[in-house]
């Protein structure tokens, strides 16, 4: 692949809890270019842990090991906390699930966006504010001036998530990690937000890691899909070829949700095979 932004080889993450060692992630390898890569799995599969460890936001009791964890030419494994601070937000940013919890409730949303810019660029406050207004317009908010001075509780979920996106994009990052960015939103809003994110990413050549539990959503939105099960990548496949997925787990996930006009009397349930854990 040309223009690789991120390279991960044999990533291992384990948590120590009261003397016990629990392996949350094992042998995860992937590389990310200028594309949309999805990491899909059920709860507890380790998908979010992978996302967080890339930014070294994992909790203290976790150990992260890898053969390779390269961001451009920076070895993230060896990077100091100072280097990480420069990377976080500025070069790799993260969009969380619920804007309600990730926005500061006592600060105007516009100021929060400006703040995100000020944190990484030495400019005057005035310029940052102008930049924030432009950004709000970019995320298709109709009346940026009015929205700028709203507080997070005054905006709807969809608008909140647009504000989050604006905040994450304003420092012009190279990679965005989106952890279930739309699962708190209604279906109609979800679609608008995703389309918006798509446009902005294409515009500025950003690589996207999209973490989700929703295989249906991901297959239409992303280019490539990593399916995770119990901390391992069981399948890595092009989104357009998901229909022909080999792994029984992927197949099971695809078949499990009922669809409109489903004529199946019983939904197929997943039989988990212990041998999935060994190959």
């Amino acid at each position: 692949m040309q223009n690789t932004k991120l390279e991960v080889k044999n990533l291992q993450i384990s948590f120590s809890h009261e003397g016990n060692q629990v392996n949350a992630v094992r042998d995860v390898s992937f590389s990310l270019g200028q594309e949309k890569l999805a990491i899909v799995g059920e709860s507890g599969s380790g998908k979010s842990t992978v996302g967080r460890s890339l930014l070294k936001l994992h909790p203290k009791n976790a150990t992260v090991e890898a053969e390779k964890l390269l961001f451009g030419d920076i070895d993230l494994l060896k990077a100091s906390e100072k280097t990480m601070r420069d990377i976080r937000g500025r070069r790799i940013s993260m969009i969380m699930q619920d804007p309600k919890y990730s926005l500061n409730p006592v600060m105007k949303v516009g100021d929060q966006i400006a703040e995100a810019y000020l944190a990484h660029y030495k400019v005057s406050k005035k310029i940052a504010q102008e930049k924030a207004l432009v950004m709000l317009e970019k995320v298709q908010i109709r009346d940026p001036k009015r929205v700028y001075s709203l507080y997070p509780h005054e905006v709807s979920g969809g608008m909140g998530q647009r504000v989050m996106i604006a905040m994450m994009l304003i420092p012009e990052p190279e990679i965005i990690i989106a952890d279930e960015p739309t699962s708190a939103l209604d279906v109609s809003v979800q679609r608008q937000v995703l389309n918006l994110l798509d446009e902005l990413i294409n515009e500025s050549n950003i690589g996207l890691i999209f973490i989700s539990h929703d295989l249906d959503l991901v297959r239409n939105y992303c280019d490539r899909v990593l399916v995770m099960y119990a901390g391992r990548v069981v399948e890595s496949i092009k989104a357009s070829e998901l229909e022909n997925a080999h792994h029984p787990y992927t197949q099971g996930l695809l078949k499990a949700p009922p669809r409109i006009g489903d004529i199946r009397h019983r939904l197929p349930t997943l039989e988990r095979d212990p041998s999935w854990l060994y190959n």
Partner: peptide
Amino acid sequence: KMLLDCCYHTEARLNDTTSFAN
């Protein structure tokens, strides 16, 4: 119909933003 359409997105690539802007 709009709700249905959002659910049927499995069958079509997302490409139309404008028709769903409120």
